[in-house]
């Protein structure tokens, strides 16, 4: 297990050094995107419409934050990760289209995303679900908010972060998926539990 501190924009070369179980801290620009922002970004790409920000080399955070506006400025109140599997249907296209290097969320992602990460060079960093203040404290400022018409949780928040983490690298760019490894072990344990407690499968 190694600890990496990377600054955006992150290059493909840098991201390929990471392996599952490594711990990653990200500094620089991070954008939030949930279901609706993913959908809209891909629609824009299809229509060759530019996004509000160039996402190449950046980190994308699956997060619906609580924000507060004071005067003209937005402040982060709480910003923990949301369940990433919902974004599985978009993420391979998203990585391919926008060359983002780090996807941050909770719960892990599936095969399509794992394959895209191996092909285009990106990792999935698992941030502790619910650790909203830990996340908020690493967010130094809100640079802007785009697509606020989608609602506060679904909007695209463009954030300046400093040592955002700890992120457990759970999918690396070499086809490894820690969540899938755990799932396999858990499946083996299922039989042991059934046996020990006399439960018929």
């Amino acid at each position: 297990m190694a600890v990496y501190k990377l600054k955006t924009p992150i290059s493909e070369e840098e991201i390929r050094k990471l392996n599952v179980n490594d711990v990653l801290y990200v500094s620089g620009t991070m954008v939030t995107a949930r279901d609706q922002a993913h959908r809209r970004a891909l629609e824009y790409f299809k229509q060759e419409k530019p996004l509000p920000i160039n996402l190449e080399g950046l980190a994308v955070f699956h997060c619906g934050p609580i924000m507060k506006k004071e005067g003209e400025k937005w402040f982060v109140v709480a910003a923990g990760p949301t369940t990433s599997t919902r974004m599985d249907i978009f993420e391979d296209e998203f990585i391919k289209s926008f060359k983002v290097r780090v996807i941050i969320g909770k719960g892990g992602m599936g095969n399509r995303t794992t394959e895209a990460m191996a092909k285009y060079g990106a990792v999935y960093g698992a941030f502790t679900g619910g650790a909203a203040i830990l996340a908020a404290k690493a967010i130094k400022s809100v640079k802007s908010v785009e697509w606020l018409d989608l609602g506060m949780p679904e909007a695209m928040w463009i954030l300046e972060v400093e040592e955002f983490g700890p992120l457990t690298v759970a999918i690396d760019s070499h086809g490894n998926n820690l969540f899938e490894d755990v799932k396999r072990k858990v499946e083996e344990n299922r039989q042991k539990i059934y046996q020990k407690f006399g439960l018929s499968p």
Partner: peptide
């Protein structure tokens, strides 16, 4: 760490309240 920070900054533990 997060539980401690939430108390310190008087902010919700999790963004999903």
């Amino acid at each position: 760490d997060n539980v401690e920070l939430a108390e310190k900054y008087q902010a919700p533990i999790c963004q999903d309240t």
